[in-house]
């Protein structure tokens, strides 16, 4: 394989992985901005999304219906999670809340083992998965789905936060919860909304991933961790920045693996995280000051 086609191949792989991280990273950002909590159970929403959609398809539902129902079910799980775990402890300190989310992520994995067992499962690609040749590199239709959905969500986010009433209301809760309350916005309702929406997005990420790498009860941990790194590298306070961060991490990993060694992949991405935290803790793409979201 010649060098230029290898580079293109690595770019495709990086974009695919980056788009998966991006979908989960958005969830981190939304929840973090609205509630101030880093939800470390975010990867588990992806796991639920993947496994539920596989079960629905096995039960005979068409793909589109399985995707929608799975996202809805996971949103409800997210809402339950907010009401039963986050809401009662909302007056606690942030580290307490974060520890609660870690506890929930372990509980979610346990529930998944009870329902689906430990065996990995797989999902058929969304459309015919014949690789597309491009300058001697190949791109899979499933990767296009994944990248496309991430980009679509990116624009949807920008539109939602800047142009819609609910989006503005969410932003208002972040900028100044007290003033928002005076304006008739209920921050607690917004927290519920943010967490269930993030859960639905996380579910979508899991569904898109499972034709690529399979789905199992423990898939959420590593996905969540990498998406977290991506969100911090890009900027935890800004959804588009987090998405950009996710693509940077994906491409960085892919090039490290393709040109150097697979073992060095995690070393590079976690070193990148530390470097960003020391040099530019607000993230690569976030504005240094100003409001969140």
């Amino acid at each position: 394989m010649e060098v230029h086609s290898q580079v293109i191949q690595l770019l495709f792989s990086g974009l695919t992985i980056g788009s998966i991280y991006a979908l989960i990273a958005i969830g981190f950002v939304i929840i973090y901005n609205v509630t101030g909590v880093l939800n470390l159970a975010q990867g588990e929403f992806a796991m639920f999304g993947a496994l539920i959609s596989i079960s629905l398809i096995n039960a005979g539902l068409p793909l589109w219906a399985a995707v929608i129902f799975s996202m809805l079910i996971v949103s409800v799980i997210g809402a339950l999670f907010e009401r039963t775990a986050i809401h009662p402890a909302r007056k606690s300190s942030v580290p307490t809340l974060i520890i609660i989310t870690i506890g929930c992520s372990i509980a979610f994995r346990g529930i998944a083992i009870l329902i689906w067992g430990t065996q990995p499962q797989s999902l058929q690609p969304f459309t015919d998965n014949t690789p597309i040749k491009f300058l001697n590199a190949v791109l899979l239709p499933q990767s296009i789905w994944s990248i496309g959905i991430a980009i679509l969500i990116l624009f949807a986010m920008i539109y939602f936060f800047n142009k819609t009433f609910v989006g503005k209301a969410l932003t208002a809760c972040v900028v100044n919860p007290f003033a928002a309350r005076l304006m008739g916005i209920n921050p607690e309702k917004m927290s519920l909304l943010a967490i269930s929406a993030s859960a639905g997005l996380g579910a979508l990420a899991g569904i898109v991933t499972s034709p690529i790498s399979g789905a199992s009860y423990d898939m959420g941990m590593m996905l969540g961790l990498k998406a977290f790194v991506a969100a911090v590298v890009g900027g935890l306070t800004n959804a588009p920045a987090a998405i950009a961060g996710a693509f940077v991490i994906g491409i960085l990993e892919s090039f490290t693996e393709g040109l150097w060694s697979s073992g060095a992949k995690d070393v590079v991405s976690f070193s990148m995280l530390l470097l960003i935290l020391f040099i530019k803790p607000e993230g690569l793409f976030a504005k240094a000051s100003g409001k969140r979201v």
């Binding site: 394989m1 290898q6 191949q9 690595l10 495709f12 792989s13 990086g14 695919t16 992985i17 998966i20 991933t209 690529i212 790498s213 423990d218 898939m219 590593m222 990993e253 892919s254 090039f255 490290t256 693996e257 393709g258 040109l259 060694s261 697979s262 073992g263 992949k265 995690d266």
Partner: peptide, 20 residues
């Protein structure tokens, strides 16, 4: 000689090196 992780999602990067 190389490795891939147990949670591998896309091994194409390392495979490009294998091909070479």
């Amino acid at each position: 000689e190389d490795e891939f992780e147990a949670t591998v999602k896309d091994a194409k990067p390392v495979l490009t090196r294998v091909k070479k």
